[in-house]
């Protein structure tokens, strides 16, 4: 109850004093959840161009990428967003994991070094976000400490969150498990790769931003 009142007061104050019209939206989550794929989907839908490269190899995104002034229309409303794609947050990075994907030892070490810096940058940028999309792979157990830490820190900073359960096109996907893990948040299931349920995602984004 206290939490609901607190959120309501926070929202009222935010709406009264908000002078900016552009919302900064961060894509957060563990590696390989589909953050960049979702960012690409949005940018393709509304700008006709992609935001970053995607890969099956973890830590493909190792630098913060920003796409500014993306105008999105949904249900007769239009909002402008600055999208910030962040490197996946992990608690361990082993350069030997990259060797499996054919990297040379030198390249693997370099990639691991860049990935560690990327994780630090992601956490540092958390404070600057207006709203955050936490992108989780719906085929993976959501009860991980990385997920709990990301969502807990957003809650502590009172940053509005939408959880995106990605990869619902895969058989093992279980959106309900994510809903059960984080019952106090809105969860929308999508396939960023194939575009399943993207309209519902945009509606949820507008509710979050509104």
């Amino acid at each position: 109850m206290l939490q609901i009142i607190k959120r309501f007061v926070h929202k009222i104050f935010r709406d009264i004093f908000r002078t900016r019209k552009v919302l900064k939206v961060g894509f957060y989550g563990p590696p390989n959840g589909g953050k960049t794929t979702l960012a690409n989907r949005i940018c393709k839908d509304w700008l006709g161009e992609e935001m970053g490269s995607v890969s099956n190899v973890a830590h493909e995104t190792r630098e913060i990428t920003i796409k500014e002034n993306v105008s999105i229309r949904s249900q007769g409303k239009e909002l402008i967003f600055n999208f910030v794609d962040t490197p996946g947050i992990a608690t361990k990075i082993d350069y030997e994991d990259f060797l499996k994907h054919g990297f040379t030892v030198r390249d693997a070490k370099e990639r691991a070094k860049e990935a560690t810096k990327g994780v630090i940058d992601s956490i540092t940028w958390l404070d600057t976000m207006d709203v955050v999309l936490v992108v989780l792979d719906a085929t993976i157990n959501p009860y991980s400490q990385v997920n709990i830490t990301i969502i807990g820190n957003l809650q502590a900073r009172e940053i509005p969150v939408l959880i995106v359960a990605n990869k619902i096109d895969l058989k093992r996907a279980d959106v309900n498990k994510i809903k059960a893990a984080f019952p106090q948040y809105d969860v929308v299931g999508i396939s960023a790769k194939h575009g399943n349920n993207v309209d519902e995602f945009y509606e949820a984004l507008f509710v979050l931003a509104g």
Binding site: I89, I120, I148, T149, G152, N153
Partner: peptide
């Protein structure tokens, strides 16, 4: 917890 992850990465 977030600071622990950052420090670990460093």
């Amino acid at each position: 917890s977030a600071a622990l992850i950052k420090k670990t990465m460093e």
